[in-house]
Nucleic acid binder design. Structure first.
Length: 803
DNA sequence: TTAAAATCGCTGGTC
DNA sequence: GCGATTTTAA
């Protein structure tokens, strides 16, 4: 997916070449085609180095070339002396692959991975020192929340008023700051449930310990404590890691920063102290503050690592001049930047386009149409992306793309292992691998239904607590047997016997085969076979896929770890598709054409962020806008809608303040749709004001009898300053107040009864044949033969016998 | 204990 | 406007 921009522009030759010295120039081939700062970033291997890499300046190329250089030039005796840390598995994979490609052979032994994956590796080796068994379980957010719910219940705290996931995010934030329960500042322990926050955090940690489990935050914290308490172990890693590389340094949180400092700051001893740490990042692309990232880390780098050098990569190989111009002006409105000036020698290209539309559906229609027209002009769908601020916005585009028959992918949708059936199957395996995994056991004790409901579970918990036993042990306890009804008793001992048998089978048989056996004998697959719901077959397919995936691992434990830390949706479908995703998940990617819908106050900048963190959040939102714009190679097209449904309610919206920051010289209003008519932003002193005045024509179809006469009551054109948003916005507000009823009228005059009847056979371009299950006005619930149940507007289906 | 009905609350997201 | 969760009825 991600392409190295430099690959397209300044180094067309294949790079499979082995790194032998170019005799004539006396330098390794892999340095060819690097610009001077890039080269410096690769060659400066000793001492701390910060590489400030602007968007599209060849950051990944520098990182991989640097690793290749360390290996090829003999700076390290073995790749395992290099530690390369990333934030995502994808980035780690990409770096591994590209380093191998650069060197011409697979690189083995390199320590490359996410912070968490590397921590697990260190922690498994030294688990006892952290009070864990080396086969500890890694809990995901789901497990975490269920555990916290139990703790809240135990403390008699109303989880309506104090929801478990709020506590979870609180604990998460503490862990991001590397704070253990006893280190919490006094006032922060008060943060939850009238002062019980700190106590609950401590209880949670204690519970994790007894469960032999870690959450994601713990992985880092345990390793930090380990290093702090056992200098000998830290020294061992100091000896091993001669060179440390960090990707996306601007995204590190306090815990990750401490972790890196411990590893990078070899404080002496027999070995000479060296801080060979190279951090690559871009303060302008710091968009994870809400997740605990500290931009301060990158801003402070030179103080933290004395003698640090800073290299700036500023030549952009990705975007056109207009796109860079607009993006640079936008980000310049932020304060507290390290400062970079991106430039390109690739020419100006097309200006960034900005279009105002009436409402969200029209926005989707406009983008859909434009994609179709790009497609007819021969543009590949893979090179087109729609980047939204928030996940829920993807829906309107999905619907539109489906009706247009344009294939698309939603990046960052629900993941394979987040599906219920996968988590259920995993729970079985977890109990087999680790009988004390109470959370897993609880999940499947009555799945499929075996008559062990809440009553039985409560008794089980009682006995377990009384005797301090894991649930699976308590399940055999005579005390419990006395309490349960015969039926439940039989059912529970049967299940326990099953687990014993499966555990034995695992010792002798292939683990993939055992998995199949477990799913079959537990009645789990049977449960889905019985299930009449249309997604049941899909779930069975997923289970099959799970078994296949397990087969690819050496053992069950290896698989369980993989799924917790690494597994993501692998797209094996090769077809060309439009990408739809959030701005956050677009970071690091690039596309020829980028659509940026929803640039409206409240949505972007996001109101919730602003409420939480004020100006700091506004700057982060602006960086997000910057990230969005700089994803585009050739074309960026921004949209804002005047009306949008929020939680099912129509609401008027105002153009985003970020539009103010876009300089006139790099932006063009969308005249193609006639939205702006003869208005010209430069001449009229603010395209926003002009745009709505001329809106009548284009919205004529929506506003049948629009009582809207903007031209009469809006006077402008004498504005000498830049975009006159403030005024435009106040006009818009008036406008919307009067326009709102028009929508209602429209809804009332629209046909409300569908020509289709329940039971009728229909055909849909995308979903194929199906039967109408329900009719609600013009909306149909259709049970498709292949695609399952969908809600579809009747206009998108035809009667089956007319096809 | 289970299934249907009603209510709630949300929608920035990696590991 | 939807899905998850909780409440209610059987």
């Amino acid at each position: 997916m991600t392409h190295d921009p430099a690959e397209h522009h300044n180094n067309p030759s294949p790079r499979q070449t082995a790194p032998k010295a170019d005799a004539e120039r006396g330098q390794p081939l892999y340095l060819e085609g690097l610009n001077p700062p890039q080269r410096e970033a690769v060659l400066k291997v000793e001492g701390p180095l910060l590489v400030l890499a602007g968007a599209g300046t060849g950051k990944t190329r520098v990182l991989t070339t640097r690793i290749g250089h360390l290996i090829a030039s003999g700076h390290v005796r073995h790749p395992s002396q290099i530690l390369a840390v990333t934030f995502t598995n994808k980035a780690a994979r990409e770096m591994q692959e590209r380093t191998s490609r650069l060197l011409g052979h697979p690189v083995e032994g390199l320590w490359i991975g996410t912070f968490h994956a590397i921590c697990v590796r260190i922690l498994r080796r030294n688990a006892e020192l952290a009070g864990l068994n080396s086969n500890f379980t890694i809990l995901d957010t789901d497990d975490q929340i269920r555990l916290l719910k139990q703790l809240l219940a135990a403390e008699n705290i109303d989880d309506k008023r104090w929801p478990a996931r709020i506590l979870a995010s609180l604990i998460d934030r503490w862990k991001n700051r590397a704070l253990s329960p006893e280190q919490l500042p006094g006032d922060e322990t008060q943060a939850f449930a009238n002062g019980l926050g700190g106590k609950l955090y401590a209880a949670y940690q204690a519970r994790l310990q007894t469960l032999n489990a870690c959450d994601f935050g713990d992985l880092l914290l345990h390793v930090i404590r380990l290093f702090q308490k056992h200098p000998d172990i830290l020294a061992q890693y100091h000896r091993q890691f001669r060179y440390i590389l960090v990707d996306e340094y601007q995204d590190t949180n306090v815990a990750q920063y401490l972790w890196l400092r411990l590893l990078a700051q070899n404080t002496g001893g027999a070995q000479p102290a060296k801080h060979n740490i190279c951090c690559v990042g871009d303060d302008d692309q710091s968009i994870y503050g809400w997740r605990g990232a500290e931009v301060g880390n990158i801003l402070r780098f030179s103080q933290d690592f004395p003698g640090a050098e800073v290299v700036r990569l500023e030549q952009n190989y990705r975007s056109t001049g207009h796109i860079l111009g607009a993006a640079s002006a936008l980000i310049a409105a932020n304060e507290g930047r390290l400062g970079k000036t991106l430039w390109t020698d690739a020419g100006n290209g097309e200006p960034v386009r900005v279009s105002g539309v009436w409402d969200a559906p029209e926005e989707a229609r406009a983008i859909g149409d434009e994609i179709e027209s790009l497609q007819t002009k021969g543009h590949g769908l893979n090179d087109i992306a729609i980047l939204v601020r928030a996940g829920f916005q993807t829906r309107e585009f999905e619907e539109r793309l489906i009706t247009l028959g344009l294939p698309y992918r939603v990046v960052g949708g629900p993941r394979f292992y987040e599906r219920a059936e996968i988590r259920d199957a995993m729970a079985y395996l977890r109990v087999i691998a680790q009988p004390s995994d109470d959370l897993a056991f609880e999940r499947i004790i009555n799945v499929p239904k075996r008559g062990l409901g809440s009553a039985a579970l409560q008794k089980l918990h009682g006995v377990a607590r009384q005797h301090s036993l894991p649930l699976t042990r308590a399940a055999r306890h005579p005390d419990l047997m006395d309490q349960l009804r015969p039926q439940a008793r039989r059912s529970l001992t049967g299940l326990m016997d099953d687990f014993d048998r499966w555990r034995e089978a695992l010792a002798t048989e292939n683990h993939a085969h055992v998995t199949e056996m477990v799913l079959e004998e537990s009645g789990y697959t049977g449960m889905w076979q019985q299930d009449k719901s249309p997604d049941a077959p899909g779930r069975l397919d997923n289970l099959k896929e799970l078994v296949t995936a397990i087969g690819e691992f050496e053992n069950l434990a290896g698989f369980l770890e993989h799924i917790a830390l690494v597994m993501d949706n692998d797209e094996n479908d090769e077809r060309e598709k439009v990408s739809v995703m959030t701005l956050h998940s677009a970071k690091g990617l690039e596309f020829d054409t980028v659509f940026l819908p929803g640039w409206e106050e409240g949505i972007f900048p996001n109101q919730r962020s602003l409420d939480e963190a004020g100006l700091k959040a506004l700057e982060e939102e602006r960086r997000l806008a910057y990230v969005g714009l700089t994803r585009a190679r050739q074309r960026a097209h921004i949209f804002f809608a005047g009306n949008r449904q929020v939680f099912g309610q129509w609401q008027a919206s105002l153009p985003s303040r970020f539009l103010d920051d876009l300089p006139v010289t790099h932006v063009e209003t969308d005249t193609a749709q006639g939205l702006y008519g003869n208005s010209n932003r430069a001449a009229r002193g603010g395209w926003g004001s002009g745009s709505w005045g001329d809106a009548d024509d284009s919205f004529a179809d929506m506003a049948n009898t629009a009582p809207y006469e903007a031209k009469q009551d809006v006077s402008y054109g004498d504005d000498k300053y830049g975009p006159g948003w403030k005024r435009a916005q106040s006009q818009l507000q008036k406008t919307h107040k009067r326009r709102a009823p028009v929508l209602t009228q429209k809804a009332e005059t629209t046909r409300t009864v569908s020509p289709f009847a329940v039971g009728e056979r229909v055909f849909h371009d995308k979903f194929g044949y199906g039967t109408v299950e329900d009719v609600e006005g013009t909306k149909l619930l259709i049970r498709f033969d292949k695609a399952g149940d969908k809600r579809v507007m009747d206009q998108f289906v035809k009667s089956a016998d007319t096809v």
